[in-house]
Write a protein that binds this DNA or RNA. Structure first.
Lengths: 136, 136
DNA sequence: GTTTATGCAAATTCTTTGCAATACT
DNA sequence: AGTATTGCAAAGAATTTGCATAAAC
C-alpha cells in the first residue's frame, strides 16, 4: 500500500514493514488497540519491543493517540492531521461493556462546559461506557 | 479520628491502621492519588502489597473510584454515598499540566450528549487537561 | 556511507497470588 | 474463638534499556 508509505513519510518516518503492518492494523480494525492486541494481530512477525517502540514513535509523531479506560491503555488513529506540534484534542471514546471494543466517535464533539473561575482548559477527553450498536 | 472508623464501618470494613491511614491520606490531599503516591505518603509503614489490596477493597466497596489520564491510573474519593451496589457515575476530572495534580470537579456535571442511534450509554467520564487555578 | 530501526538479552517496574502469622470483632 | 487482614516471598506481567546487527535513505 502506497497509502501507508505516504502517511509515514508525511510524518518523517522511514518506511519499515513493522510500521506498515502496525499502521494497516489500525486502519483495518477500526477500534482502539492495545499493545497486546497488536502483538496478537501481528503474530510472531515482530519483536514485542519493536511494537512498543513503534507505538511510542507513532504517538510522538501524532499518528495515534492514547485511549484510556478502566481496563488499561489503548491506542487509536488520530483522525486527520495531527503532527508532532499540533494535536487534535477533542475526543469522545465509546467503550462497549459487552464486546469490550473501544471506538472513537469522531463525528461528535463535546459540548462546552462552564468551568469554575481560574481553570484554563486545553483539551477534553470523554469516555462513555455502555452498549454499542453491534451488541444492542 | 472517629470519622475514619465511621466511614470504614459504614462500608462493612474492619478498622485497621493501614485503612485509616490510606483513607486519611485521600481526605487530606484532596486530589487523586496513584498507588505510588500512597506508597510515598505512607513511607515504609506498610507493605506495597497491602496498599494494593486496600485500594482494591476501597474500590469494591465504593469508597474510591478510578481516575484515568495519559499518565496512568489514579484513585479519588467517591463524593458521597457510593456503595458496593450503587455508584455515582458522572465524573469530571481536571488534570493540571503544570503541577500535575488531578482533581474531581464534583459540583459540575456532564452536559447530555446526543449519541448516534444504537449507542446505549451507562456512564460518563470526562477528563479535562489544562491549567488549574493554583498554577494560573 | 551514514543514519535509523530492529532483535535479542537482560534489567526494571508494576501487579498478583499463596500462605503462615497477626490483628480485629 | 472465629474471621478477616497483613507481611513476606515469590511468581507473573508489563515496560524499558543497551548494544550489536540489519535495513532504509
Amino acid at each position: 500500500m502506497d497509502q501507508l508509505r505516504e502517511t509515514l513519510k508525511g510524518h518523517q518516518l522511514r518506511t519499515t514493514t513493522c510500521r506498515e503492518d502496525v499502521l494497516s492494523t489500525f486502519i483495518n480494525k477500526k477500534n482502539a488497540l492495545s499493545h497486546g492486541d497488536l502483538e496478537g494481530a501481528l503474530g510472531e512477525n515482530y519483536d514485542r519491543v519493536t511494537i512498543y517502540r513503534t507505538l511510542k514513535t507513532f504517538l510522538e509523531k501524532g499518528i495515534i493517540h492514547k485511549v484510556l479506560d478502566d481496563e488499561g491503555l489503548r491506542y487509536a488513529l488520530c483522525s486527520h492531521s495531527c503532527s508532532e506540534e499540533k494535536h487534535q484534542h477533542d475526543h469522545i471514546h465509546f467503550k462497549c461493556s459487552a464486546c469490550g471494543e473501544t471506538n472513537c466517535l469522531e463525528t461528535l464533539h463535546i459540548p462546552s462546559i462552564q468551568l469554575p473561575n481560574g481553570y484554563q482548559p486545553e483539551n477534553f477527553n470523554l469516555l462513555i461506557q455502555g452498549v454499542c450498536p453491534k451488541c444492542n
